[in-house]
Design a protein around this nucleic acid. Structure first.
Lengths: 213, 213, 213, 213
DNA sequence: CATGAATGAGGGTTCATTCAT
DNA sequence: CATGAATGAACCCTCATTCAT
């Protein structure tokens, strides 16, 4: 599915508003007003409000579909290096697309199953992510670098859950760590660095034998 | 603030529906229908839909306000034992009140700051939780059991984030781990056990010196 | 119909609120709140909101029913003196019960004919007033003091209309005449004096032969 | 502000209903039903019920803004002739737009100050009317036709108050003067004639020296 | 191909009144 | 005799969508 410039602009505005106020809490009038278009354009271009959020998911998924693949298939890296790159990749992706991941979190919290399309896309992404981590861990186990008996699901949960939680509670994090004076960009940089170190440390301790460096 | 039986019933229904469809996505007619009351009762009992969700937060917060206190102040436990009890407490609390924590996650994702009341309550709860973990860690450091330089915020994020993420992606977790045949109760039990083991392992590796058992 | 102290208190509050916001614009909750009673008391004491305004009219009418009679039947006064006393009486009555006359004006403007009871009371009052003026004028004509061919209805309209209009546009009157610094009481006194002089002058010029003093 | 045909139709219906039942007493459903439109059209066209009445005031004010000007600035007329034309103009205007003036009277009786817009418009109209009368009277005084020491406010009150009062109590007027058999049009004609004569007589006696014809 | 006028359904809230106590 | 809990109707307004142009 290809979208023209106007459609992409609408999607972008919708993404910001859905992130801030939720799907139900955002009216097409809000979107139309912010995007400076007529309200009927949303139905015209996308068919309905629901189709709009589907389009949003499609666009963002296509963008991020290729990343995991590149990491796993790179043969020059050790399993632990791959894990490290994976962690940084997740951090970058989630913090770099905060609006979209906010929406995705909301959708996962929703029992409404807005549409099968979105559910399927989220499922596919999760599966791909899980398989990526899994294949790296298996490779590490085969190479004798990693322990046996690692719970991939829970380790994934720790990776994504920690980043999401920090993303969600940014303002609290700033307050508690006296980082309120920092600009958004600088704060993001600091956050990424600390998150990266923290998660790498957890992963290493969890998967790698002590002797591995 | 005290609520009578009918009010508590409404709150309970609202909690379930807000968790499933979000605040904006749930109409007071939905709530009234499910609770088998007249639509005007919500305004009558709570003043407005917004006041209803505030009441919900107040009730749930009062319930869970005392838990952390009991753990921290118990003098018979070692710091690591306290951490372990804390972890199990968090798991129990979040998985035992899935609807409410779903709503709380939604509210944290929301940029709307529905009301100052809710924001304040969430902030207070987070602060209390943070202080609880912090004081246990400090105690462990003073006693020489725990490492220095622990990032309390990120460790909290890992604890809450991991549990929340699992809570949010339960169905995926079941599917990927072939646990779809289990009943909800049995699954919850399994999940709690595995989460507990996983998080305790992470915390131990992160905070404790290797020699500590 | 007799009303107890509580009922009279309710009537008094209702009068003030009806005057300020109109009958439809005033809710029984407003009244109950201001009168510091339960909402159900209005239905309980009066039967309904409509019956309440009827009661208000009854009470105020009984109060003012006797005045005109006294003026007309006083044999010691000349017709013109009677007219003068009548004018001052109308001014005093309308300005002394501004709330009630506000409500009465509203009811007369209304095409709803809220109830036959109110319509009848207003009709009776108007008729009594008209007859009072008429009989004084007739007396003056018989005595040769007053001209023939006086339009009693229009003269009444000028009397009541002028006072009502001033009553209605008090704030404009204050502004245009630079009386904004005066207290309400002092302003009322000034207003009454000027209205009295103005209307007496009009009446004299309209009804009396020039030579009459 | 320009209004299209449909908006003007809605305004016209609203005017009639507001006059009959008051603003609070008229629901947008009433208006929609009478105007044969969907209820949502009122919000759609005017924004809200309050904005609708504002629009009504704007339209009617624009219509009557020019009249006074024409009278005052006409140099071929004597001051007394101008007064006479003014009186007939007021009578025509008030009796010709009974619905609107009913609403305006209601608004002036209201302590709610529905919106600043309406209050301002009414104030401007009153001021313009006052200034018109004032300038004619001053002209008459300068030319030596009129007395000194005329209270413009009270004279205005008598003019507008008398006409309004007759307008308000038409049915009583008919009854008392045995004019119940007349059709509305014929009655209006009779009323205008009598009102005109009555008010001109009052004004002449009040402002002009006896010798002036 | 794009628009904005128009719609019916449903949103949250307030209403006057009733009824069991 | 007096109360407050509870009700269903109606309130104004916003919603996503449609349709003629």
């Amino acid at each position: 599915m290809e979208y023209n410039a106007k459609q992409l602009q609408i999607i972008q505005v919708a993404e910001r508003l859905f992130a801030g106020k939720g799907f139900s809490g955002t009216s097409i009038r809000d979107i139309a007003h912010e995007a400076d278009i007529n309200v009927s354009m949303i139905s015209y271009y996308f068919g309905s409000k629901e189709k709009l959020i589907e389009a949003l998911f499609e666009v963002r998924f296509v963008e991020s579909a290729e990343r995991m693949e590149n990491i796993v298939s790179n043969e020059d890296l050790s399993p632990l290096q791959k894990i490290y790159i994976l962690i940084d990749g997740v951090i970058d992706r989630l913090l770099g697309n905060q609006c979209f991941h906010n929406i995705m979190l909301r959708e996962q919290l929703s029992g409404e199953e807005r549409t099968q399309v979105i559910s399927d896309l989220i499922y596919q992404l999760k599966l791909k992510n899980w398989e990526g981590i899994n294949s790296i861990l298996r490779e590490g186990q085969i190479k004798g670098h990693f322990r046996e008996g690692i719970d991939v699901s829970l380790l994934s949960a720790t990776l994504y859950g920690t980043v999401n939680h920090v993303l969600t509670t940014q303002s609290f994090y700033r307050k508690i760590n006296n980082l309120e004076s920092l600009g958004q960009e600088e704060f993001d940089k600091t956050l990424k660095k600390q998150l990266s170190k923290h998660l790498k440390s957890i992963f290493k301790a969890t998967v790698a034998y002590e002797t591995i460096e």
